[in-house]
Amino acid sequence: MTVTAEKLTETPTQTPLVTMRLWRGDATGGCFVDYEVEASEGEVVLDVVHRVQATQAPDLAVRWNCKAGKCGSCSAEVNGRPRLMCMTRMSTLPPGEAVTIAPMKTFPILKDLVSDVSFNYVVARQIPPLAPRPREADGTHRIAQVDIDRVQEFHKCIECFLCQDVCHVIRDHEGNKAHFAGPRFFVRAAALEMHPLDTLDRRPLLRHHLGLAYCNITKCCTEVCPVGIKITDNSIIPLKERVVDGYFDPIAWLGRKIRRKPARTPVTEPLAPQATAGANGPRPGRRSPGEA
Protein backbone atom coordinates (compact mmCIF):
# COMPACT_ATOMS: atom_id res chain seq x y z
CA MET A 1 0.00 0.00 0.00
CA THR A 2 1.35 3.47 -0.85
CA VAL A 3 0.82 6.54 1.31
CA THR A 4 0.60 9.85 -0.51
CA ALA A 5 2.35 12.99 0.67
CA GLU A 6 -1.01 14.63 1.20
CA LYS A 7 -1.97 11.87 3.59
CA LEU A 8 1.20 12.25 5.58
CA THR A 9 0.81 16.00 5.96
CA GLU A 10 -2.92 15.80 6.66
CA THR A 11 -4.00 17.59 9.83
CA PRO A 12 -5.18 14.97 12.33
CA THR A 13 -8.89 15.08 13.01
CA GLN A 14 -10.04 16.11 16.46
CA THR A 15 -10.07 13.12 18.82
CA PRO A 16 -13.56 12.79 20.29
CA LEU A 17 -14.10 13.19 24.01
CA VAL A 18 -15.94 10.56 25.98
CA THR A 19 -17.24 10.60 29.51
CA MET A 20 -15.82 7.81 31.63
CA ARG A 21 -17.92 7.29 34.76
CA LEU A 22 -15.62 5.37 37.08
CA TRP A 23 -16.31 3.99 40.54
CA ARG A 24 -13.98 5.59 43.05
CA GLY A 25 -13.85 4.31 46.58
CA ASP A 26 -12.95 1.47 48.90
CA ALA A 27 -14.55 -0.56 51.67
CA THR A 28 -15.53 2.60 53.53
CA GLY A 29 -17.66 3.88 50.67
CA GLY A 30 -17.48 5.36 47.20
CA CYS A 31 -19.25 7.01 44.30
CA PHE A 32 -19.06 7.41 40.53
CA VAL A 33 -16.80 10.18 39.26
CA ASP A 34 -17.04 11.48 35.68
CA TYR A 35 -13.90 12.09 33.62
CA GLU A 36 -13.92 13.73 30.19
CA VAL A 37 -11.17 12.12 28.20
CA GLU A 38 -10.07 11.58 24.61
CA ALA A 39 -10.75 8.24 22.97
CA SER A 40 -9.10 7.37 19.67
CA GLU A 41 -10.44 5.04 17.03
CA GLY A 42 -9.71 1.40 17.73
CA GLU A 43 -9.14 1.84 21.45
CA VAL A 44 -10.50 -0.46 24.09
CA VAL A 45 -11.98 0.56 27.42
CA LEU A 46 -8.74 -0.22 29.26
CA ASP A 47 -6.81 2.19 27.00
CA VAL A 48 -9.16 5.01 27.92
CA VAL A 49 -9.11 4.12 31.62
CA HIS A 50 -5.32 4.27 31.46
CA ARG A 51 -5.59 7.70 29.86
CA VAL A 52 -7.75 8.83 32.76
CA GLN A 53 -5.14 7.47 35.13
CA ALA A 54 -2.29 9.17 33.24
CA THR A 55 -3.91 12.56 32.84
CA GLN A 56 -6.51 13.12 35.54
CA ALA A 57 -6.56 10.50 38.30
CA PRO A 58 -3.07 9.15 39.07
CA ASP A 59 -4.39 7.43 42.18
CA LEU A 60 -6.98 5.41 40.26
CA ALA A 61 -6.63 1.71 41.08
CA VAL A 62 -7.09 -0.63 38.13
CA ARG A 63 -5.73 -4.15 37.82
CA TRP A 64 -4.35 -5.23 34.45
CA ASN A 65 -1.52 -7.21 32.92
CA CYS A 66 -1.52 -8.42 29.34
CA LYS A 67 -4.02 -6.16 27.52
CA ALA A 68 -4.67 -9.13 25.24
CA GLY A 69 -7.48 -11.06 26.90
CA LYS A 70 -5.12 -13.74 28.16
CA CYS A 71 -4.41 -12.93 31.80
CA GLY A 72 -7.93 -12.27 33.08
CA SER A 73 -6.86 -9.38 35.29
CA CYS A 74 -8.91 -6.42 34.06
CA SER A 75 -12.36 -7.82 34.82
CA ALA A 76 -14.92 -5.14 35.65
CA GLU A 77 -18.51 -4.19 34.89
CA VAL A 78 -18.75 -2.02 31.81
CA ASN A 79 -22.18 -0.42 31.48
CA GLY A 80 -23.44 -2.99 33.96
CA ARG A 81 -22.13 -6.06 32.13
CA PRO A 82 -19.18 -8.10 33.41
CA ARG A 83 -16.42 -7.83 30.82
CA LEU A 84 -12.69 -7.69 30.31
CA MET A 85 -11.82 -4.02 29.86
CA CYS A 86 -9.01 -4.92 27.47
CA MET A 87 -11.37 -6.80 25.17
CA THR A 88 -14.18 -4.25 25.09
CA ARG A 89 -13.79 -1.88 22.17
CA MET A 90 -15.01 1.64 22.73
CA SER A 91 -16.73 1.51 19.34
CA THR A 92 -19.08 -1.22 20.60
CA LEU A 93 -20.50 1.00 23.34
CA PRO A 94 -23.40 3.39 22.75
CA PRO A 95 -21.98 6.66 21.35
CA GLY A 96 -22.68 9.89 23.17
CA GLU A 97 -23.33 8.19 26.51
CA ALA A 98 -21.10 8.01 29.55
CA VAL A 99 -19.25 4.72 29.87
CA THR A 100 -19.95 3.37 33.35
CA ILE A 101 -17.27 1.17 34.89
CA ALA A 102 -17.71 -0.45 38.29
CA PRO A 103 -15.73 -3.16 40.06
CA MET A 104 -17.02 -6.74 40.03
CA LYS A 105 -20.06 -6.78 42.29
CA THR A 106 -19.72 -10.32 43.63
CA PHE A 107 -16.40 -9.78 45.39
CA PRO A 108 -15.30 -7.38 48.14
CA ILE A 109 -13.78 -4.14 46.94
CA LEU A 110 -10.14 -3.28 47.57
CA LYS A 111 -9.99 0.09 45.85
CA ASP A 112 -11.73 1.73 42.90
CA LEU A 113 -11.98 -0.92 40.15
CA VAL A 114 -10.00 -3.62 41.97
CA SER A 115 -11.80 -6.47 43.72
CA ASP A 116 -10.55 -9.06 46.19
CA VAL A 117 -11.07 -12.36 44.35
CA SER A 118 -9.45 -14.60 46.97
CA PHE A 119 -12.79 -16.38 47.53
CA ASN A 120 -11.99 -18.21 44.30
CA TYR A 121 -8.65 -19.42 45.55
CA VAL A 122 -10.29 -20.92 48.62
CA VAL A 123 -12.75 -22.81 46.44
CA ALA A 124 -9.94 -23.94 44.11
CA ARG A 125 -8.14 -25.60 47.00
CA GLN A 126 -11.21 -27.64 47.91
CA ILE A 127 -11.22 -29.59 44.65
CA PRO A 128 -8.86 -32.59 44.55
CA PRO A 129 -6.50 -32.42 41.57
CA LEU A 130 -6.08 -35.11 38.94
CA ALA A 131 -5.40 -38.54 40.41
CA PRO A 132 -4.18 -40.52 37.38
CA ARG A 133 -4.43 -44.28 37.10
CA PRO A 134 -1.15 -46.26 37.33
CA ARG A 135 1.24 -45.89 34.46
CA GLU A 136 1.47 -48.49 31.77
CA ALA A 137 4.23 -51.11 31.67
CA ASP A 138 6.55 -48.86 29.69
CA GLY A 139 6.14 -46.06 32.22
CA THR A 140 3.87 -43.86 30.12
CA HIS A 141 0.33 -42.57 30.20
CA ARG A 142 -1.25 -43.01 26.78
CA ILE A 143 -4.34 -41.02 25.90
CA ALA A 144 -6.17 -41.14 22.58
CA GLN A 145 -6.73 -37.72 21.05
CA VAL A 146 -10.53 -38.17 21.04
CA ASP A 147 -10.41 -38.78 24.79
CA ILE A 148 -8.69 -35.52 25.56
CA ASP A 149 -10.35 -33.26 22.96
CA ARG A 150 -13.42 -32.66 25.09
CA VAL A 151 -11.59 -31.34 28.15
CA GLN A 152 -9.27 -29.11 26.12
CA GLU A 153 -12.09 -26.58 25.95
CA PHE A 154 -12.06 -26.26 29.73
CA HIS A 155 -8.31 -25.62 29.78
CA LYS A 156 -8.87 -22.36 27.90
CA CYS A 157 -10.11 -20.74 31.12
CA ILE A 158 -8.06 -17.64 31.99
CA GLU A 159 -9.56 -17.28 35.46
CA CYS A 160 -10.93 -13.81 34.91
CA PHE A 161 -13.79 -14.79 37.27
CA LEU A 162 -16.37 -12.96 35.16
CA CYS A 163 -18.52 -16.09 35.30
CA GLN A 164 -18.27 -16.05 39.08
CA ASP A 165 -19.15 -12.36 39.08
CA VAL A 166 -22.26 -12.71 36.92
CA CYS A 167 -23.56 -15.86 38.63
CA HIS A 168 -26.60 -14.69 40.57
CA VAL A 169 -26.26 -17.53 43.09
CA ILE A 170 -23.42 -15.67 44.77
CA ARG A 171 -23.82 -12.25 43.18
CA ASP A 172 -27.21 -11.70 44.79
CA HIS A 173 -26.90 -14.04 47.76
CA GLU A 174 -23.65 -13.57 49.66
CA GLY A 175 -24.48 -16.39 52.07
CA ASN A 176 -24.37 -18.93 49.25
CA LYS A 177 -20.62 -18.48 48.98
CA ALA A 178 -20.27 -20.83 51.92
CA HIS A 179 -21.70 -23.74 49.93
CA PHE A 180 -21.49 -22.86 46.24
CA ALA A 181 -18.33 -23.13 44.18
CA GLY A 182 -19.46 -21.20 41.11
CA PRO A 183 -19.21 -21.80 37.36
CA ARG A 184 -15.45 -21.48 37.11
CA PHE A 185 -15.00 -24.42 39.45
CA PHE A 186 -17.64 -26.50 37.77
CA VAL A 187 -15.53 -26.08 34.65
CA ARG A 188 -12.52 -27.22 36.68
CA ALA A 189 -14.43 -30.18 38.11
CA ALA A 190 -15.70 -31.14 34.65
CA ALA A 191 -12.16 -31.08 33.27
CA LEU A 192 -11.14 -33.54 36.00
CA GLU A 193 -14.27 -35.70 35.95
CA MET A 194 -14.10 -36.19 32.18
CA HIS A 195 -10.36 -36.77 32.15
CA PRO A 196 -9.62 -40.24 30.77
CA LEU A 197 -6.85 -40.92 33.31
CA ASP A 198 -8.62 -39.72 36.44
CA THR A 199 -9.55 -42.21 39.17
CA LEU A 200 -11.59 -40.01 41.50
CA ASP A 201 -15.35 -39.58 41.65
CA ARG A 202 -16.05 -35.98 42.61
CA ARG A 203 -19.84 -36.28 42.38
CA PRO A 204 -20.36 -36.50 46.16
CA LEU A 205 -18.26 -33.38 46.54
CA LEU A 206 -20.18 -31.59 43.79
CA ARG A 207 -23.51 -32.50 45.28
CA HIS A 208 -22.87 -31.99 48.97
CA HIS A 209 -20.15 -29.34 49.19
CA LEU A 210 -19.77 -27.45 45.94
CA GLY A 211 -23.49 -26.74 45.50
CA LEU A 212 -23.99 -27.93 41.93
CA ALA A 213 -27.75 -28.07 42.50
CA TYR A 214 -27.80 -24.34 43.26
CA CYS A 215 -27.07 -23.62 39.62
CA ASN A 216 -30.32 -23.03 37.76
CA ILE A 217 -28.59 -23.02 34.36
CA THR A 218 -29.51 -19.48 33.34
CA LYS A 219 -26.38 -19.48 31.17
CA CYS A 220 -25.12 -16.04 32.19
CA CYS A 221 -21.69 -17.57 32.82
CA THR A 222 -21.58 -18.78 29.23
CA GLU A 223 -22.65 -15.37 27.96
CA VAL A 224 -19.83 -13.50 29.68
CA CYS A 225 -16.98 -15.99 29.15
CA PRO A 226 -14.34 -14.06 27.15
CA VAL A 227 -12.74 -17.23 25.77
CA GLY A 228 -16.01 -18.78 24.67
CA ILE A 229 -16.20 -21.83 26.91
CA LYS A 230 -19.71 -23.28 26.76
CA ILE A 231 -19.76 -23.46 30.53
CA THR A 232 -23.38 -24.46 30.98
CA ASP A 233 -23.85 -26.86 28.09
CA ASN A 234 -20.48 -28.58 28.23
CA SER A 235 -19.57 -28.60 31.90
CA ILE A 236 -22.42 -27.78 34.30
CA ILE A 237 -25.23 -29.74 32.63
CA PRO A 238 -23.02 -32.82 32.02
CA LEU A 239 -22.00 -32.66 35.68
CA LYS A 240 -25.65 -32.40 36.73
CA GLU A 241 -26.41 -35.42 34.58
CA ARG A 242 -23.55 -37.32 36.20
CA VAL A 243 -24.96 -36.48 39.61
CA VAL A 244 -28.34 -37.77 38.40
CA ASP A 245 -26.57 -40.99 37.33
CA GLY A 246 -25.19 -41.37 40.83
CA TYR A 247 -28.10 -40.28 42.99
CA PHE A 248 -31.43 -40.02 41.17
CA ASP A 249 -31.56 -42.68 38.47
CA PRO A 250 -32.54 -46.20 39.60
CA ILE A 251 -31.85 -47.62 36.13
CA ALA A 252 -28.29 -46.29 36.23
CA TRP A 253 -27.91 -47.78 39.72
CA LEU A 254 -29.13 -51.13 38.48
CA GLY A 255 -26.77 -50.95 35.53
CA ARG A 256 -23.83 -50.38 37.85
CA LYS A 257 -24.86 -53.34 40.00
CA ILE A 258 -25.22 -55.70 37.05
CA ARG A 259 -22.06 -54.70 35.23
CA ARG A 260 -20.05 -54.41 38.46
CA LYS A 261 -17.80 -51.80 36.95
CA PRO A 262 -14.83 -50.87 39.13
CA ALA A 263 -15.94 -47.75 40.93
CA ARG A 264 -13.78 -44.66 41.03
CA THR A 265 -12.74 -43.49 44.46
CA PRO A 266 -15.46 -41.18 45.77
CA VAL A 267 -14.43 -37.82 47.15
CA THR A 268 -16.81 -36.89 49.92
CA GLU A 269 -14.99 -34.04 51.65
CA PRO A 270 -13.29 -30.94 50.25
CA LEU A 271 -9.51 -30.77 50.54
CA ALA A 272 -9.34 -27.40 52.30
CA PRO A 273 -11.77 -25.74 54.70
CA GLN A 274 -14.59 -23.86 53.09
CA ALA A 275 -14.86 -20.12 53.39
CA THR A 276 -16.79 -18.95 56.37
CA ALA A 277 -18.95 -15.93 56.91
CA GLY A 278 -17.10 -13.14 58.67
CA ALA A 279 -18.24 -11.66 61.95
CA ASN A 280 -20.10 -8.90 60.16
CA GLY A 281 -21.10 -10.99 57.17
CA PRO A 282 -24.71 -11.52 56.22
CA ARG A 283 -26.61 -14.65 57.15
CA PRO A 284 -27.27 -17.14 54.35
CA GLY A 285 -30.14 -16.03 52.17
CA ARG A 286 -29.83 -12.35 52.94
CA ARG A 287 -29.16 -9.88 50.22
CA SER A 288 -25.70 -8.61 49.57
CA PRO A 289 -24.63 -5.16 50.75
CA GLY A 290 -24.37 -3.82 47.24
CA GLU A 291 -27.93 -4.59 46.34
CA ALA A 292 -30.96 -2.36 46.13
Partner: peptide
Protein backbone atom coordinates in the same frame (compact mmCIF):
# COMPACT_ATOMS: atom_id res chain seq x y z
CA UNK B 1 -11.20 -15.54 53.53
CA UNK B 2 -14.10 -13.95 55.29
CA UNK B 3 -17.38 -13.76 53.47
CA UNK B 4 -19.53 -10.71 53.70
CA UNK B 5 -16.85 -8.16 52.81
CA UNK B 6 -17.98 -4.76 51.58
CA UNK B 7 -18.68 -4.81 47.87
CA UNK B 8 -17.88 -2.07 45.44
CA UNK B 9 -20.20 -0.30 43.05
CA UNK B 10 -23.53 1.39 43.65
CA UNK B 11 -26.49 -0.10 45.50
CA UNK B 12 -28.50 -0.64 42.36
CA UNK B 13 -30.27 -3.74 41.06
CA UNK B 14 -28.42 -3.29 37.78
CA UNK B 15 -26.30 -0.79 35.89
CA UNK B 16 -27.40 -2.14 32.54
CA UNK B 17 -28.97 0.42 30.25
CA UNK B 18 -29.78 -1.85 27.34
Amino acid sequence: VHLGGVRGGPKAATLRRD
